[in-house]
Amino acid sequence: MADPILEFRNINTHYGAVHILKDVNLAIYPGEMVCLLGGNASGKSTTLKTLLGMVTPTSGEVVLDGEVVNDKPTSYRVERGITMVPENRRLFKRLSVLENLQLGAYLREDKQGIESDLERIYRMFPRVKERLSQKAGTLSGGEQQMVAMGRALMAQPRVLLMDEPSMGLAPALVQTNFELIQQIHEEGIAIFMVEQNANMALSLADRGWVLQTGRVVLDDTAESLLANPDLRKSYLGDAGGH
């Protein structure tokens, strides 16, 4: 396998005096789909924020393309192809759909590339094209999810972090949503997904980690995770889930 794009080496983070992530090791390789599972307060959001540079680790190294980027701002990592579709989508509701998409390409200077990427997104989500001049806040949940993905794609990511992509979506949309993720993945973009819906996530992913109170307790292929009885019990709904 090629070298990993993004790596955690013995990462520890603190929020005030609270120790959140404890000696976490992760690696995301080009083009793969991985998922991070864990219950509430297990440190999933902190993992994402640390990957993006919104949280600075207290010890350990965040490595991007072989370079330690602990002190680099978010924009540095976005420029190098790391971006995220945040939980609940968090569009700029008072900005138009088009402006939301354009902001995704904020760091890019290649006008033509931006134009052709826009076209690509219109092809991918024809409904978005119909609503370009509307304020993003007026769209339905499913449409907002499309804009959020489009916005992230406009950054030309190599790794797309997805924070709870099916959260807040109507059940009927969840399936479509995962199909979209699959579609993006097929374009060669590595996907790092944080998801409560572990069944669905693992059925798509190549590998997965399970985080418990800030510590990685399981690190395995998706198939073996799906088969893991402990995991089935706590995350896959065999015992009623949580």
């Binding site: 919104m54 701002p73 976005v78 900005l95």
Partner: peptide
């Protein structure tokens, strides 16, 4: 305008 609405996401855009 993006920063006015959501600073965290704005910085995620590279702003």
């Amino acid at each position: 305008r993006a920063v006015a609405e959501d600073k965290e996401i704005a910085s995620l855009m590279g702003i």
